[in-house]
Amino acid sequence: MHEVDPSYMGFSPDDRPVADVAAWRLNERKRLIEERKCLSSVNRENLSRSIALNLDDVLGDVTRKVISLYWPFLGEPDLRGWMSAAATRGATCSLPVVVGKGQPLVFRTWRFGEPLERGVWNIPVPSQGKEVRPDIVIAPVVGFDADGFRLGYGGGFFDRTLALLQPSPLVVGVGFELQKIETIHPLHHDIPMDYIVTDVAVHRPSTHRE
């Protein structure tokens, strides 16, 4: 029995029932999103600028790199300015696209001025971009812990996608320092980030892949 995946038996790695973890995550997700949305627009802009600077320290030269970013949603850090600067420096930038429930994300190239259409949750996605495989995935977090695990919106799209991408991209979670929590109570499908970049620090989890 001890050799069976705990999630198959209905338990998380820390022996909490999966249903309890799901309920806890739902409440924690709501709390963290509300906290983030309460930031003033000026404060959010300043914090996003600090995140962009720390992101540069982590990634360095992005020339010829294919990078997946995101369109800001529900008070997430706005890195569209950083995306534009990265494209100017020679990176190929893309946005993730949900193609169907239970399916992995696809990534389509996009530059400012190119057409967008409404995707899931009315988030803009490229309407004509080329499908690419990213070298670097920058994923927004709702919450994160010291082990590099990311609390997202609960759809499982990023974890499902990252499990399939080969070779594995560099995965960087981005968020505000106020979103750090003690643990997300990771389940066996949760994939840790290589780095978590916030307005205060670059967190390199103990689970970082060399």
Rank of each mutant, 00 (worst) to 15 (best):
M1I: 08
P6H: 10
Y8E: 15
Y8Q: 14
G10W: 05
F11C: 10
F11D: 08
V18I: 14
W24Y: 13
E28A: 08
R31H: 09
L39R: 01
S41R: 15
V42R: 15
E45P: 01
L47M: 13
D57S: 14
V58C: 11
V58S: 09
G60K: 14
D61Y: 05
K65P: 05
K65Y: 06
Y70A: 13
L74H: 11
G75S: 10
P77E: 04
R80C: 06
W82H: 15
M83L: 14
A87I: 00
R89D: 04
G90M: 05
G90F: 03
C93F: 06
S94Q: 11
P96Y: 02
P96R: 04
K101C: 03
Q103K: 15
R111A: 12
R133M: 10
V137M: 13
D145L: 05
G152C: 02
Y153M: 06
G156D: 11
F157M: 06
F157L: 11
F158Y: 15
D159E: 08
L165E: 01
S168I: 08
V171H: 04
V172E: 00
G175L: 10
F176T: 03
L187T: 10
H188A: 10
D190W: 07
I196A: 04
V197G: 05
T198Q: 06
D199Y: 00
D199E: 04
D199S: 02
H203G: 00
H208Q: 15
R209H: 08
